[in-house]
């Protein structure tokens, strides 16, 4: 079980993608690989008012998602080489010496977290900036966020502070993998599904490898 987790305040996120860029910079990631991805979710309808005018009820918000170091990690179960493994501190890591780059973990992960590095022929992903944590620092995505929408800490503290909500549209049902991700949804998120909301920056966030 993961002892650490992320808290994400979707209502505070402006979608500036500083977290995504800081992560790429810190991990020296090549083009097309993103350990952290900012999804732009939007949906809207046009409604006719009693006076005959038309008005929209647009919903738009952002979700900043990296590896959630799940309690029940489907990537670890799927990995045929045990390269994808859970450390004693609950952080899920990839052993590059064992990974064959079969990409099965990418299929199994409902959050699209493992990313394929074509140059190296192996998978890579967020490790909570483990080197920073060991130095007593916070992950780079957290410290770089200008809106303070991201927070990192022990799961028990995050739950105590923010509650245990791990779901928001369109993220998968958290019961599948029990992600260590706690979310304060945007106020409009509850309506996004019924408004036919979807991720509108798919081309930007998809795995290009």
């Amino acid at each position: 079980m993961s002892t650490f987790g992320f808290y994400f305040d979707s209502s505070a996120c402006s979608g500036c993608k500083t977290c995504q860029v800081a992560c790429k910079d810190k991990n020296d990631l090549q083009a097309g690989i993103r350990f952290r991805r900012v999804y732009e979710v939007a949906g809207a309808n046009w409604n006719k008012t009693d006076e005959g005018a038309w008005e929209h009820d647009i919903v738009a918000y952002n979700l900043s998602i990296a590896c959630n170091h799940c309690e029940n990690p489907s990537c670890v179960k799927a990995c045929p080489t045990t390269a994808m493994h859970s450390e004693l501190d609950g952080i899920i890591q990839i052993d590059p010496k064992k990974c064959v780059g079969c990409r099965y973990c990418q299929w199994a992960c409902p959050y699209g977290s493992p990313q394929y590095n074509r140059q190296k022929g192996i998978m890579q992903k967020c490790d909570f900036c483990r080197d920073y944590i060991l130095d007593g620092k916070q992950p780079v995505c957290v410290t770089s966020c200008p809106m303070r929408a991201l927070e990192f800490g022990p799961i028990s503290q995050l739950i105590e502070k923010y509650g245990d909500n791990r779901s928001v549209f369109p993220l998968p049902d958290p019961s599948i993998t029990k992600p260590a991700l706690f979310i304060k949804p945007h106020p409009g998120a509850a309506r996004a599904s019924e408004l036919g909301g979807s991720i509108i920056n798919r081309e930007e966030v998809k795995d290009e490898q």
């Binding site: 064992k98 990974c99 064959v100 780059g101």
Partner: peptide, 8 residues
């Protein structure tokens, strides 16, 4: 991507 490790 890396068949060298196939036996693993």
């Amino acid at each position: 991507g890396n068949p060298v490790n196939a036996m693993k």
